[in-house]
């Protein structure tokens, strides 16, 4: 049985691949049919829909998944694309939020345009 973290990842991968909203049942079927080295153990114990629902509600709480409540069963989809989330993450890394320095330590800070030109010159000499 995969851990919740691995399942969250697998569910998000599926939701990012399929832009249209899906039910937990559909997701369960897709997850079970997915051939992946990490999922081999799942063959012996099929994934329960309740587990998928748990994972979905965790992801909803984290603001990654939204639920369409107008029809039953509820349908789920990703709030934004994978690329958008990566961009958000990168903005956090490259950005200048007040406590960014203390949150994560970057190899190199942002440089000015003039400095970047000097650096390129320096690299040309190497």
């Amino acid at each position: 049985m995969a851990t919740l973290g691995e399942l969250e990842r697998a569910v998000m991968d599926l939701l990012w691949e399929h832009p249209e909203a899906m039910t937990a049942n559909t997701l369960r079927d897709l997850l079970s049919s997915r051939p992946s080295a990490a999922d081999q153990s799942r063959d012996t114990r099929p994934l329960a829909v309740t587990t998928v629902l748990t994972v979905l509600s965790r992801l909803e709480k984290k603001g990654l998944v939204e639920r369409e409540r107008s029809i039953r069963p509820h349908r789920y989809k990703a709030v934004t694309s994978r690329a958008d989330h990566t961009a958000e993450l990168m903005l956090e890394v490259l950005g200048s939020a007040p406590d960014r320095e203390a949150v994560l330590a970057r190899f190199i800070g942002t440089v000015s345009d003039g400095e970047a030109a000097t650096l390129r010159k320096l690299l040309g000499g190497h």
Binding site: L91, L94, I108, S112, R120
Partner: peptide, 14 residues
């Protein structure tokens, strides 16, 4: 440093 300076993201947040 020069690689990240060329990115649109860094001019956006820099």
């Amino acid at each position: 440093a020069s690689g990240s300076a060329q990115l649109p993201a860094s001019s956006l947040v820099g």
